[in-house]
Design a protein around this nucleic acid. Structure first.
Lengths: 154, 154
DNA sequence: CTGAATTAGTCAGGGCACTGAGTATTTCCG
DNA sequence: CGGAAATACTCAGTGCCCTGACTAATTCAG
């Protein structure tokens, strides 16, 4: 039987890691606001007035998914969506006061959660953890977006 | 503006890692069979005749999700579902010949994909990558499953 | 200036992932 | 034996995630 050990499959580990995070988030941060939703709030705190597509780019979500997430945040009254007067295709996004309030509250809780989540690793290991994951993710994303100004042999 | 750097958020990195893997899987392994579906096939190659719940446990999926995945694999004719004659609650699962064939084919492709995915890391870094992710995921899962009885082997 | 690309967003469709409620079957206990 | 508890599975509901096809608005080229 040619069965394989899933522990050597990075995809399987990535999925388990994300699931573990999802559960911890639910218990330690919020049952209402999800981690991707928080990422969107955070992007709009950093850069108010972004359009939908750019927010998606900042947090790593495609146009369909970002539309759903933003629609939920809008329904909850956490952000406003206004048609760009200068370009009728865009919607400009801005947090409401409630959105800012929620972002502040969750920022504190998220920091606590991250500590618990990373507690099994020493400080040095945590830095390596971030570095390795980021390098793998960046490289894989680069495979998908080949048009980058990488190799322009001039 | 109290915005946070998402690169220091393990949850965000985990999500990006999984998305990157998803895309690579789609192009290098299969557009039909997903990574979780392959994990189920693999579990049944290792242990034919498992019931649904146990398969879910092996691959890290809850009862609802594993039911959907198995239903899809059944519709594609990759596995058979038979009610356990000894316990009318269970369904026993077994791969069909086609299921075995698909598993063999994808095993080869998956190995190739993993090499590409992990190419940015040296062999030593890959080992660390596995170790760190596994420790974090295990610890977080442990938080949710309080004090499992330490496997009394009969 | 006008028709062809490009761009932002929507919508339909498929799949993963969880919770909570409900059904059927088995087991456990008094 | 018979009812309560446990177990395996199903179903409804929510949310994330992608692709591919579509609409509307803008930009660009001839």
């Amino acid at each position: 039987m040619a069965a394989v050990d899933l522990a050597t499959h990075p995809g399987h580990l990535a999925r388990r890691l994300q699931q573990a995070h999802y559960l911890l988030w639910n218990t330690m941060v919020s049952e209402e606001i999800t981690s991707p939703q928080f990422a969107v709030l955070n992007a709009l705190v950093a850069e108010p007035g972004l359009d939908q597509r750019t927010v998606g780019e900042r947090v790593g979500l495609d146009r369909s998914t970002i539309a759903e997430v933003i629609s939920r945040l809008g329904r909850r009254g956490l952000l406003d969506k206004v048609r760009d007067p200068g370009d009728g295709r865009r919607f400009l996004l801005r947090l409401t006061d409630e959105g800012l309030r929620v972002h502040r509250k969750l920022t504190v809780r998220t920091a606590r959660m991250n500590q618990v989540f990373l507690a099994p690793l020493s400080a040095g290991e945590q830095a390596v953890f971030f570095d390795l994951i980021q390098r793998v993710a960046d490289a894989a994303e680069g495979l998908r977006n080949p048009a980058e100004p990488v190799a322009a042999p001039r």
